[in-house]
């Protein structure tokens, strides 16, 4: 299977029935731009079922040529301008993008894990090695919960020493994750609020509150936070022993959205909740654009048709011609006319 595509306009609409591969196309662009898939953590799932490898190639306006090869038996290879990259992270840059799919629409009213994943995705855009912290923390949590299930017999003393070893590591990594998530929200807050105001014609004021899963001092100090978390981990041990899961740490983080002071998750209307998601995405686009100097690509996967005409137009107006957009939908008539004009249309119907 092979698809070659030249994007000639600032806006590309990919139209076709379900299962034809619209999302795959957008996912491929996202993968080349971020080295991550929003859908799958396993490369095997990204390769056609009877092929051994998949290749994504792109040439950017800047004359940069990017290539990523995925192999079924594991391993990726990245090339930039034909040169093999020892570090795949060096592929990042020319094709930075922000994804917005129908799954994101649940960001405000869905489970807390959705909001944590969203935060992590944005932090990763700003700081790729954050992935090391996240994966180490996940492993520590899994090892720790297994430790409780694993019967250490009568060696209570050794269990406590072992837990100390986990506490020390978790306290340090937790501190670093908390700090990055909190800082990100502090930077996103003013941008998101500005967009919320714009989208609601000045009626709505948005505040993003970080509710960390550990009790933290207001002032940011690594040593202080670390020892506080270590103490909290120690104090919850007897509860953890009964319930088998750890109650302290970034895996219990939550983000609260306040709209004119009221909890948007509980009291916001469905429409307001969607507007918040749009404001958050626009803030994300802006923050990444500010940081790297280039406006990132916007990938709208199956989401535009989910928005009512009024919000479609607001989003169109906000994005304007500043960001290149790749948009997927099943029918062209799901869009407001203004989206179709001056757009390149790729019809995958046949």
């Amino acid at each position: 299977m092979r698809l070659q595509l030249e994007v000639t306009k600032n806006r590309l609409l990919v139209i076709g029935p379900n299962g034809i591969g619209k999302s795959n196309l957008l996912e491929a662009v996202g993968l080349l731009g971020s080295l991550r898939s929003h859908r799958s953590a396993n490369d095997k799932d990204l390769i056609h079922w009877n092929e051994n490898r998949a290749i994504i190639r792109a040439a950017a306006d800047t004359d940069e040529k990017l290539e990523l090869e995925l192999r079924r038996n594991g391993g990726r290879q990245a090339f930039r301008n034909g040169k093999f990259l020892k570090r795949q992270l060096d592929l990042l840059g020319p094709l930075r993008c922000v994804g917005f799919s129908s799954l994101d629409l649940d960001l405000v009213r869905g489970e807390p894990s959705l909001r944590r994943n969203w935060l992590d995705k944005v932090v990763l855009q700003l700081e790729p090695i954050y992935s090391d912290l996240i994966s180490r923390y996940g492993k520590l949590l899994r090892q720790r919960s297994q430790l409780w299930r694993y019967n250490l017999g009568s060696e209570v003393e050794s269990m406590d020493t072992l837990l100390d070893a986990f506490d020390t590591q978790m306290a340090l990594i937790s501190t670093r994750i908390h700090r990055r998530r909190r800082r990100l929200l502090e930077r996103l807050n003013p941008l998101a609020n500005l967009w919320q105001k714009k989208l609601s014609k000045g009626k709505e004021d948005l505040v993003l509150n970080y509710l960390p899963g550990s009790v933290l001092e207001e002032s940011e100090d690594e040593a202080l936070w670390k020892s506080a978390i270590e103490k909290q981990l120690f104090n919850q041990r007897s509860i953890e022993k009964r319930l088998g899961n750890c109650k302290i740490g970034p895996h219990r983080d939550e983000v609260e959205f306040l709209l004119n002071g009221a909890h948007a998750r509980k009291f916001g209307s469905a429409g307001q909740q969607r507007t918040i998601v749009i404001a958050l995405k626009l803030a994300e686009l802006e923050l990444i654009g500010q940081l790297y100097g280039d406006p990132p690509l916007l990938l709208l996967d199956d989401v535009l048709a989910e928005l009512d005409p009024h919000r479609q137009l607001l989003l169109l107006e906000a994005v304007g011609n500043k960001h290149q957009c790749l948009i997927s939908a099943t029918h062209l008539d799901a869009f407001e006319k203004d989206w179709n004009s001056d757009s390149q249309i790729l019809n995958l119907d046949n």
Partner: peptide, 14 residues
């Protein structure tokens, strides 16, 4: 690794 660091911290304490 996580396992190596856990073992190191455990041994250090003992």
């Amino acid at each position: 690794s996580i396992e190596g660091d856990t073992t190191s911290l455990y041994l250090a304490k003992l």
